[in-house]
């Protein structure tokens, strides 16, 4: 999964953000966007020397200032699982369509058969048509 997807799945997890200036922010990711802008909560900010610490209840980071992010190992696993789930859901959504299409396509003969069986007496004309068609297909074979 893409780096920003992983960042998205890190929401709610603790992470370490290092800025280009060398300052680090330790906190829980609240939200993020496609520009890597972040909002964090319960943050400990460290200056670039690592000598001073500041507690911030929440903070906003503009993405362009970020050098890198460190996320917990579990997040990769979670992201993988989510990714797989999404794929399966996608498959579930797309398969019935295909199935329906197939049924219409290849099952027309069967349905025709159904028509005949159910309504054969009511639609004599159509029944005849189908009979003809049946005959034609028999010739084809």
């Amino acid at each position: 999964m893409l780096p920003l997807t992983l960042l998205n799945t890190s929401q709610g997890h603790p992470m370490l953000v290092e800025l280009k200036s060398g300052e680090t922010l330790n906190g829980h990711l609240v939200n993020c966007d496609a520009w890597m802008n972040l909002t964090l909560k319960e943050v400990v900010q460290t200056n670039s020397d690592g000598t001073r610490f500041f507690r911030l209840p929440e903070c906003y980071v503009r993405g362009n200032n970020i050098k890198y992010l460190r996320v917990p190992d579990e997040v990769l696993e979670i992201a993988r699982e989510k990714n797989q789930q999404q794929r399966e859901e996608h498959r579930k959504v797309s398969q019935p369509q295909r199935g329906g299409y197939n049924r219409q396509y290849s099952g027309s003969g069967q349905r025709g058969g159904g028509y005949q069986r159910n309504r054969g007496s009511a639609n004599i004309g159509r029944g005849g048509g189908q009979f003809q068609r049946g005959g034609r297909s028999a010739q084809q074979y």
Binding site: P3, L6, L7, K20, M36, G63, N64, I66, K67, Y68, L69, R70, V71, P72, D73, V75, L76
Partner: peptide
């Protein structure tokens, strides 16, 4: 040992 990194490409 550092674990998982997301490195911003610019850097």
């Amino acid at each position: 040992e550092r674990g998982v990194y997301i490195v911003r490409g610019e850097n």
